[in-house]
């Protein structure tokens, strides 16, 4: 497998960093190479947070930002207003987004391939009582992508964040809808 580059977009407090670190852990557990670099702006709750996640079979050498992602993982749909959110998405690139809006409302770019949507906020609030959609959106990630083994991902979520977070991921795995193919 050639290296896959995933860019995360979230807001401070949503747990984007922890989610990506979980993917790295699950990938490494499965014998793959993986790397995550968070990019903090001003560190405060609610401000936009970026993250750069790479998964590959071969060692990953570059430690740079991601300019042409294979996949976008968007934890907050208000971020699609920012030009940098969809910037550089590869032709046929995958978008996984925490939203209930239509593809038109989300202004999905022309070049996007599969677009998967899940109401991660509602699922997280149901199980955790708070809008921390990180482990939930990983359920959608597990369904849409085959970069990491789903059971390894779910057991890693349970190991680090407990049973309720695993339930979030499992529910999102079932609830995710493909709004464009």
């Amino acid at each position: 497998m050639a290296m896959k580059e995933i860019r995360l977009h979230g807001r401070g407090g949503q747990g984007a960093v922890k989610a990506a670190q979980l993917v790295v852990r699950a990938a490494v557990t499965g014998g793959k190479q993986a790397q995550f670099i968070p990019f903090f702006g001003v560190e405060r709750k609610g401000s936009p947070v970026f993250g750069y996640l790479r998964v590959a079979d071969e060692p990953i050498r570059r430690k740079t930002q991601i300019y042409t992602p294979d996949m976008l993982l968007i934890l907050d749909d208000s971020l699609v207003m920012l030009p940098e959110t969809y910037a550089g998405l590869k032709e046929g690139g995958v978008i996984i987004i925490n939203s209930t809006k239509s593809a038109e409302e989300l202004n999905i770019p022309q070049q996007a391939g599969t677009v998967a949507e899940v109401d991660a906020t509602a699922i997280a609030e149901k199980h955790l009582g708070r809008n921390i959609p990180n482990t939930t959106i990983l359920g959608a990630f597990g369904k849409v992508s085959d970069l990491v083994d789903t059971e390894t991902l779910f057991s890693t979520i349970e190991e680090i964040f407990g049973k309720e977070n695993r339930k979030c991921a499992e529910e999102a795995y079932e609830a995710v809808t493909i709004i464009r193919k």
Binding site: V24, Q33, A34, Q35, F40, K63, T64
Partner: peptide
């Protein structure tokens, strides 16, 4: 080692 690009980089 480089702040953030290495200090906050997670890997095996």
């Amino acid at each position: 080692y480089d702040g953030f690009y290495s200090s906050h980089l997670t890997t095996g």
